[in-house]
Amino acid sequence: MTLIIQNLVFGLFVGSIYGIAAVGLALVFGVMKMLNIAHGELLMIGGYVSFWLFHLAGVDPFLSLLISAPLLFGLGVVLHQVLYRHIARFETEQKIKNSMLVSFGLVLILQNLAQQMWTADERSIQTAYSGVGADVLGVALPYTRMANLGLALLVVIGLHLFLSRTYLGKAIRATADEWESAILVGVNIRQTFLITFGLSASLAAIAGALVVVGYGLSPSIGLAWTLKALVVVVLAGTGSVFGVVPAGLLLGLGEAVSGIIAGPAYREVFGLLIFVAILVVRPQGLFGRA
């Protein structure tokens, strides 16, 4: 019994990373109508920033977010100006196709660059408090994993306040809803796109730090994370940025359950099954508007 609960709790912890990884993808998809396959590569680079800051300068991985998130914002801005900006002119359908093509190209480039610079070795961070945690009725609750969950909640609350309370946040939502009307009221949507993309990259950096603390980091992990994030976005419903974190938690839990029932080998299959099932049964997702 304890073992089952332990599994579920860990499912919830990993689900919170899924949530953070997916929020950034959902934001770019909702606002720019682009599918950024390279989102997982941004996560991977963010993870390496945290790794090297810890390894070379002893910076705590959670503190390193203060550096890696702005740094990835900058990288996002550069990538947007060099690549994604040019796709923004296409019609919506063309946008999705072209953004997938371009970002897949970027995946290959970033993966190879990372391998050249940092080798293919798997990396992770062992802090002094790694493995330390609370123990509730025999269920281990490592502090780093609990921090994942806390951070995921902080991220959605922060993002919610930004999008609902600030003029810039409202401009981003307005652009997502009806970009031509956004122009009509005076929103510079090119600037909105730029900021949205930067923000998405920052969110990837946060997810990346959590991955390197709790799991493993290597140059090739990006696509797997993009896929997870995509499953979560579909589960939440495209266009529902705030449904993404609960959907992430749900996927983590679901994987844990399927791992218990069918054995660990089937964990990964579960996400893909969910993906197909949702598309067939409820294409607007759990939290999306029909």
Binding site: K170, R173, A176, D177, E178, S181, A182
Partner: peptide, 12 residues
């Protein structure tokens, strides 16, 4: 401009 078809920010 009040556009044809209104084009409101539907989610707001």
């Amino acid at each position: 401009l009040v556009p044809e078809g209104r084009k409101l920010f539907g989610g707001m």
